[in-house]
């Protein structure tokens, strides 16, 4: 049974989510990939305001394809998250509570998630056509020059994600594989 969550995602809410939970996410989320993360962290280092409020925000690691006429957004599945590992702890410290991507995260990210209360969600990599249907609205809010890598404000409804790493550091990539292998050995 899926849990329904609507953003903003507070730290308290984030702490209630557990690794392996299936979640349908609704509300406003922001897109950012490598180049946008670099710029956000450069702003943060100079103590300047970010182009959107990261407090209780969820960032989706995605660079969508251009929307066809009539579409809110093009195909929009997750990109591999470890490339954002250098930047995520800074944003988590500033109040970010959720990240959506796919693939492993480094110990420095997990540490920041535990310390501040944040979750790492996985969306299905390679299912961009399916996932784009959950996006109702998309507008560029910063770094238009980055093209697909610009920061977009998305309104989503029932975006299907799974909690991979929770705020206690429990990791579905470890437990899922272990449980499957145990089921085969029986």
């Amino acid at each position: 049974m899926e849990k329904r969550i609507t953003t903003p995602l507070t730290r308290q809410q984030a702490r209630t989510l557990k690794s392996g939970d299936a979640v349908l996410l609704s509300g406003v989320i922001y897109t950012a990939r490598d180049a946008a993360h670099k710029r956000l962290c450069e702003l943060a280092a100079r103590g300047q305001p970010l182009p959107f409020d990261v407090e209780n925000a969820v960032i989706y690691f995605v660079g969508p394809t251009p929307a066809k006429p009539g579409q809110a957004i093009g195909s929009a599945g997750p990109t591999t998250s470890y490339r954002m590992d250098a930047y995520s702890p800074t944003l988590i410290a500033l109040g970010l509570t959720g990240m959506i991507g796919k693939g492993k995260r480094g110990p420095e990210v997990v540490q920041a998630m535990k310390e501040h209360g944040a979750v790492y969600f996985g969306a299905i990599g390679g299912a961009g056509a399916l996932l784009s249907r959950c996006v109702l609205k998309s507008e560029v809010v910063a770094y238009e020059d980055l093209g697909a890598e610009a920061i977009r404000r998305l309104e989503v409804r029932d975006l299907p994600v799974t909690v991979i790493i929770d705020s206690e550091g429990s990791n579905l990539y470890e437990t899922g594989r272990k449980n499957y292998l145990a089921s085969v050995k029986k």
């Binding site: 995605v62 093009g74 195909s75 599945g77 990109t79 390679g126 299912a127 961009g128 056509a129 784009s132």
Partner: peptide, 8 residues
Amino acid sequence: NSVPICQD
């Protein structure tokens, strides 16, 4: 829908 299977 003739849309990309994946955004990459």
